[in-house]
Amino acid sequence: MRNISDIIEQHIKKIMSGGGSGICEIKRSELADMFNCVPSQINYVISTRFTIEKGYVVESKRGGGGFIRITKVGLELNHTLHRVILDLMGSSVTAKEAEGMIQRLHDEGVLNPREARVMRSVVCTDILALTPAIRDQIRANYLSAMLVALLKG
């Protein structure tokens, strides 16, 4: 059985795809009522499942008429793609951030399943048995090198 976070995520994605615009505006309290959970659960789902690395921009307006707007940002297969990803990544990247980027590239059709698996195996924490700061820098270098190679070919 799926957990409540998975269910909320799928519901939000369904709303986004339903309108065809890739934009979803929700009220946190209404969504919490719908799923019989606390509003902080909605915050958790949005902050972990709808990140920039995964291709989403989240805006919020607080107050009585407040809302949360989630926008799916598409990728274009050109030189800009590599630049955008490198700018997001910077000089270091955590395993979670790398996974988000790889998953997004797979979801967008930039990577096939095999390429995504290979990239995950290279940047996983287990393979890089180093101190966290050095590991994150090396992970960023590996990820960058793989993206350059894949996007050139």
Rank of each mutant, 00 (worst) to 15 (best):
M1W: 12
M1H: 15
N3G: 15
N3H: 06
I7D: 00
I15Q: 05
M16N: 03
S17M: 12
S17C: 08
I23M: 14
C24Q: 01
E25P: 06
I26W: 00
I26C: 00
S29K: 00
A32Y: 00
C37R: 14
N43L: 14
S47G: 10
S47E: 14
R49D: 09
F50P: 01
I52V: 05
K54Q: 13
Y56S: 04
E59H: 07
K61V: 02
G65V: 02
F67Q: 06
I68C: 02
T71M: 15
K72G: 00
V73A: 02
V73K: 08
L75G: 03
L75N: 07
E76A: 13
L77Y: 10
H79Y: 11
T80Y: 06
L81A: 04
V84Q: 11
L86K: 11
L86I: 14
D87A: 06
S91K: 10
V93Q: 04
A95I: 02
K96P: 05
M101H: 05
R104G: 02
E108N: 05
G109T: 09
G109I: 08
V110D: 13
P113S: 11
E115K: 12
R117D: 15
V118R: 04
M119Y: 09
V123P: 12
V123Q: 07
V123S: 10
D126G: 09
D126N: 11
I127F: 14
I127V: 14
I127G: 10
L128C: 06
L130P: 04
L130Q: 02
L130D: 00
A133I: 15
I134F: 15
I138Q: 14
R139V: 01
A140S: 15
A140I: 08
N141I: 01
N141T: 06
N141W: 03
Y142T: 00
S144L: 04
A145V: 05
M146C: 10
L147E: 03
L150Y: 07
L150A: 10
L150G: 10
